[in-house]
Nucleic acid binder design. Sequence first.
DNA 1: GGGTTGAACAGAG
DNA 2: TTCCACTCTGTTCAACCC
Length: 690
Amino acid sequence: MYPNTALSGLSGNPQMMVLYNLSSLFLAGDEKKGKTFVMDSISDEGDQPWQSYHTVFTNAKAGMDGVDKEKVQKIVYEMSKGSKFFVNEQRKDAYIKQKIESLRVQCAKLTENDIFHFQKIADRRISELEASRDLSQIWLHSDMDAFYAAVETLGNPQLKEMPLAVGSMSMICTANYEARKYGVRAAMPGFIARKLCPDLIFVPTNFEKYTYYSELTRKVFQKYDPCFIATSLDEAYINITKICLKRGVSGDKIAEELRSAIYEETGLTSSAGVAPNRLLAKVCSDINKPNGQYILPNDQKAVMAFIMSLPIRKIGGIGKVTENILKDVFGINNCEQMLQKSPLLCAMFSHSSADFFLSVSLGLGGTNTPQFRSRKSMSNERTFSATDKESLLFQNLEELAESLSDDMQKESLYGRTLTLKLKTATFEVRTRALSTTKYIQSKDDILNSAVKLLKAELPLSLRLMGLRMSQFQDNNRASLDTRQKTLTNYFCSGNSTAHSTTSEIHDDKVMVDSEYDGIFFSNDIFNSHIPYDDSNEPRETSMNSAEACTNQKKESSEKPNNLNETNEVQTSPLLMSDDTTTSTAPSKLKEQKELLVWVNDYICSICEIQLPPSFTRERQEHVDYHIAERLQNEEFKGGNSTHSICLDRSRESRKRRVEENPLKKRKSLSKNSNNYIPIDSFFVKTSKNN
DNA sequence: GGGTTGAACAGAG
DNA sequence: TTCCACTCTGTTCAACCC
């Protein structure tokens, strides 16, 4: 019934997946109760089929509380049904429902001993988490109100009272609050939005404009916390602990002040949430949107009272699928229930997943400022009219390769794993990857790999293709590590408007990575596949994020920073960091130092591109580009410059096996299969039964 | 047994 | 008229290599 792809893990979110066991039915009451626990689940909607179609509409968005949900759902359903997109959504839904049913079956197999065992584990873990609670920090999450739409309105005040969507007929990026009253929202196709709101005005996106206003807001954030964390153009986390202490004022006061400053600087309104950690601050900023703020005191009782009634979907990292699973399998609708069902969560999920749920249900989140994290991948993708014409597909592929190569050059990136993403005419998504023996960047090298990947999939009718490069060379090349340190110092030294996208960290990911790294576990624990059991003791991490940040700050304070000097010929901040650069490739980098100067303070001496001093970030990237270019040339000069691409042997052999026996199932079975049944293997069984 | 690779998928903006 | 985007990060697991 389902493609092989559907046999992979439950995936997703920091945690989901894996070891589904049994559980809690019994916790809530007697055994009988447990067996009938089976919630209202997948009910047959009968003559109101739109009620189960949740693809686009959700009430979760600010400004949509008063919307007639049923009316909107019905319109969306009517406009969607029968389409290829709709059919694919049904397929995905059916798969999730099957997973949920399977989980229930596993739950029903829990014995009293199992429950007792996991109750102990959960209790111990909750104690550990509680002991780690840090209420010493005050975090502010700033979120611009309907940002893109607001910027567009700023340039054209006539739009102010009109329903406005930024995007196109195929997809909307954001909608103003006037449009949201009709159920129009981000991630909704424009043609459906137009049906919901016939007077809806469409404005195309203009990211230059949004970036400009974003930079203005960041100048404000900078004043309150030089190490603020930008998570997107319109959102940021600001640690206001120091400024509150220094001025002896409350978070409430600072939030008001910051929002006023943003308004004065940009003419745009924003909302803010203040709380002891980032996870809670993010939730708080949504409460009084738009143009409002909500303060959660740094008090354990207040936090628990707040979190207990919080619907799980409000938590960053819990999306549609996770919400459905938690609701339908465990009966968890809010964080209080999540805490009550903690033994079940420990029984059914992997260590990291269970830990995530437990810490969320205690209202814990990131409190330290995470260390700089480098980019992991870079990609681009294009949607087009579905076609199986190979010439068109290869032409698209060439354009993608060129575009990706250009983007990589701008950031001086060299990668060795290329992933081809395909979306078929029926909306099924496939990815195919290969790793090259050399790090590559040029269009030709990328295209060479991409063509091999695509050829193996043809013939095929496609509506989207994408290319993603990962496994960047940064980690292997000392010079680029140096660059990162320097940039971090640069940001932390409080010296820039250049809180660039490279420093942007997604909030929820930060919470999991940095905070967990810092407080409880090192990365390897989190990435491991160890089931949550007694045998897994928390381990100490070698250096947590807070320490890392402290070290960075220390370093930065010890280094000269002449950025504000306006010399006739200004050297890039990167090239000034002698102590870090010389440690790895002294002669080369010294050469580079002499290599690039800004003639008359704005012309690159190498390529004559003109970049004024205020373009700090662009200049930084430009310098990096020349350095990487030089290093790469030298590297290739000395050796093999052919970028031989070899399909991984394992993949070849696997491919052979699949060709020989396409129906062969995965061998499966976790190392811990005596106690835990991996979701994959479980579904293999289910499929067989079917 | 540890490390790597490839694949699928969740989630966020 | 138009008929469901794009980019990035992260988790999980099987299979394979050394």
